[in-house]
Structures are given as C-alpha cells and as structure tokens.
C-alpha cells in the first residue's frame, strides 16, 4: 500500500514573491484594509510504495530543502494547515515538468526506487480579516493567483 509524504517548505529569509503578491493585492485590487499578510510555501507530495516512510521523508527533505534558507514540515498521509490564514493550494493542471524532473531525480539519480509519484504545488497563505475570508481567498485566487487555462486551485483544510 502506498503512502504519501507531504513536505511543506518555506523560506526563512524574506520572500520577495509573497511581498509582491501582498503589494499587488493591496494596491491594485483594493484589499489593503482586510489583507494582513501573505506568505508562501512550496509543497511536495511524494508517493512511495514501500520502505520506512519516516526515514524516507527525512531523506527527501535533505535533498529538496536548502537548510541555509528554507525550513520544512513533514506530514505523512495528511495535509493540514494552521489557523489564522486561508491556505490556497495552486498547482498546474497541465503537465508539471518540474514535478516530473523531481520524481526522476529522486528515482533515477538518487536511487529512491520506491518513489511512485511526485506532485508540486504552491501554497499561498492569505491572512485575511473581515467576513468570509474563504470566499475572499477564492476571489483572490481567480483574480491573481491562477491562470485558469493552465492552473487549478483549492482552499485546503485547516486544523480544527
């Protein structure tokens, strides 16, 4: 039976892309009053079919995370996020070349033959005030975070 390792990766140093998204939403879309912050994570979802999943997860983190500038959190067979923001998961709906390259790197070059599949996504963490933040997050995703001809998004679950 396969298991899924979710690797949430974020920058420890300032994230210029997240800052640009925050500025754009505030200055060009009128969210200045309700948008408190924007943060970003990369998400690797790695499916493996055998082996010590905890040990594998640590090995993958070593390969995929640059500890000099990034931190990560490992989740096995689950994906959830903290309270305080709306997590918007954006991924390609066309073929994701980077995810395929990562899979091949893990399987062929680094010898993790138990890797079945790798998917990548960007998690935009929108710290929104006001009423119905999830509805606003959906609107923001449609207005700015995705091009519907190549991207797809979902509001992912948070811890209850």
């Amino acid at each position: 039976m396969s298991q899924k390792i979710n690797l949430r990766v974020w920058l420890k140093i300032p994230d210029a892309e997240a800052a640009t998204v925050k500025n754009t939403l505030a200055r060009r879309f009128g969210y200045a009053d309700i948008l408190n912050d924007v943060k970003k994570e990369r998400l690797f979802s790695i499916e493996v079919d055998c082996g010590d999943v905890e040990e594998l997860a640590r090995s993958f983190a070593k390969e995929l995370v640059n500890e000099n500038k990034e931190s990560c959190k490992i989740l096995i067979d689950e994906l959830n996020f903290e309270e305080g923001y709306v997590p918007v998961k954006v991924s390609l709906k066309i073929e994701d070349g980077e995810a395929i390259s990562t899979r091949e790197r893990l399987r062929s070059r680094l010898g993790f033959t138990n890797v079945v599949d790798v998917k990548k996504a960007t998690i935009w963490k929108l710290y929104l005030g006001g009423m119905d933040p999830e509805l606003r997050a959906k609107k923001i995703a449609e207005e700015l975070l995705i091009n519907p001809h190549k991207d797809t998004f979902e509001i992912t679950s948070r811890m209850g």
Partner: peptide
C-alpha cells in the same frame, strides 16, 4: 494576462511552461 490578446478583454489563454515533444515523447522542458 491583461486580456488584450487574443482580444476579448478576458484571459482566454495561457503561455505555459515549454514542453518539447518529439515522436510522441517529451524530450525536453523549460
């Protein structure tokens, strides 16, 4: 991205990541 092309005012297409295909196989990306 501004909707000026193809010209309906909406985002009607995307210029997505390069995927190079030859003889039915992806030979290169990016």
């Amino acid at each position: 991205e501004s909707g000026l092309l193809p010209g309906t005012g909406k985002i009607d297409m995307a210029l997505a990541q390069n995927v190079m295909v030859s003889k039915g196989k992806i030979v290169r990306r990016g």
